[in-house]
Design a protein around this nucleic acid. Structure first.
Lengths: 225, 225
DNA sequence: CCGCCGTTTGGAACGTGTTCTAATTATTCG
DNA sequence: CGAATAATTAGAACACGTTCCAAACGGCGG
């Protein structure tokens, strides 16, 4: 059986097919993530008590920490799996829209819908992202690249290949700038949603549409530079 | 002596001169905040252990919770005081710049500088903001309005009256949109800084300049609508 | 089959945010 | 002043993330 190192990082963040884990270990890991997600779906971030996660997944508490660095790490892993689903969805049905603005708006609508589908879970995932532990930085950077890739392909009206390595994707300078800013707006809107819980899918989508309209208009000359 | 209610909210969020607290209570509150800030300055968010805060401020742990709802609440209060200082600074020396873009960039530069002055403290304050407790929503909404006011007056090239009630300030629809998006970008950049700690003042300022350039160009026709 | 060695387990233990309580102190008011 | 009322205190207690440990387990090379 392979030696398990601190683990879980570099795993969700990069592509390597999930390190070298035996099947039984993969199953264990899956049970852990599933249990955490179930608990989050029912009661949000706070309901994900690691003792419960351990019990539900038939794993000792200590083992849990062999697979993940901590609570946020598990949820970040789930977040990344959500991203993968989103990528797959974008691949199967490309974002529609005649203009970049329409496509970008549509992309954010679909991404947001995924998160708000189960508000409890979505809020938990976002809290995990914004929790700001130094150790999760790599994970988050990885997620960011994936989101950037999706956004920019939507912007370009290109097809998205979910299986291509993320690092192979190279946006232009101006694309990167726009993407970074828009993702910032999106992220802030999501945090606002988690904290205040007022806005719904349409509100957030509208916000993103407004921001994208401003930024795409301003970049009109540079977006294909 | 006046009855202390759950307290601390509605206090930092709105203007009312700090509820009805006797001088000794005001002093106690001040000691608490000061102690928390000192600890945060030295060791960041995690170093603010409430037992230490209580000891340093010569207050019982339980009393601390009479004044604030929790750890984040104290730091949010300090954040608001920082905002007040920033407002005062903007009043004393108005943001310079011939164009809206220059002024907005300069505003974010000054705001960011204030936060990064002491990185430990700044990081702690931002973690408190993004921590996403439902109870702190009011606080955060209040801070948001204050920042919006500063940003929009910079945009308009108007003078800022730090003593005017925040709610009296009414941005236009398009101003509100731009401000909301830009503040989102700023916030996301700050969180990125807290998590990754790579970027410095200049990097963040540049990011804000890029975002502002895009958005102000896009809104050129609408900013005075 | 045996022994090795890394993994898993169950559970104790620790740190810290938060809550609770009984006793004490401070303030207000008649 | 004296009594009533509110605030403060010290410290226990609780919850939960995280760490640690000794014992049991499991697969693999010999």
């Amino acid at each position: 059986m392979s030696r398990i190192q601190p683990l879980s990082h570099g795993l969700a963040a990069s592509e390597p097919p999930v390190a070298k884990l035996v099947a039984s270990q993969l199953r264990r890991m899956r049970r852990i993530v599933d249990a955490a997600v179930e608990l989050a779906e029912q009661g949000g971030f706070d309901a994900v008590r690691l003792r419960d996660v351990a019990e539900r997944s038939d794993v000792a508490l200590g083992t849990l920490y062999k697979y993940f660095r901590g609570k946020e790490d598990i949820l970040l892993f789930a977040f990344n799996e959500g991203l993968r689903r989103l990528e797959q969805g974008l691949f199967e049905r490309r974002v529609a829209g005649a203009t970049p603005l329409e496509r970008v708006t549509e992309f954010f609508r679909r991404a947001t819908r995924g998160l708000l589908q189960n508000p409890q879970l979505g809020g938990a995932l976002i809290r995990a992202m914004s929790g700001g532990d130094r150790e999760t930085a790599v994970q988050i950077a990885g997620s960011n690249r994936r989101i950037t890739r999706m956004l920019v392909t939507a912007l370009r009206d290109e097809a998205l290949d979910p299986d291509a390595p993320v690092d192979a994707f190279a946006p232009t300078e101006s694309e990167r700038e726009i993407a970074e800013a828009l993702i910032g707006v999106w992220f802030a809107a999501l945090i606002g949603w988690v904290i205040g819980n007022e806005p719904d899918l349409d509100t957030i989508t509208r916000k993103m549409n407004v921001a994208a309209r401003l930024m795409l208009a301003g970049a009109r000359d540079g977006s294909a530079r």
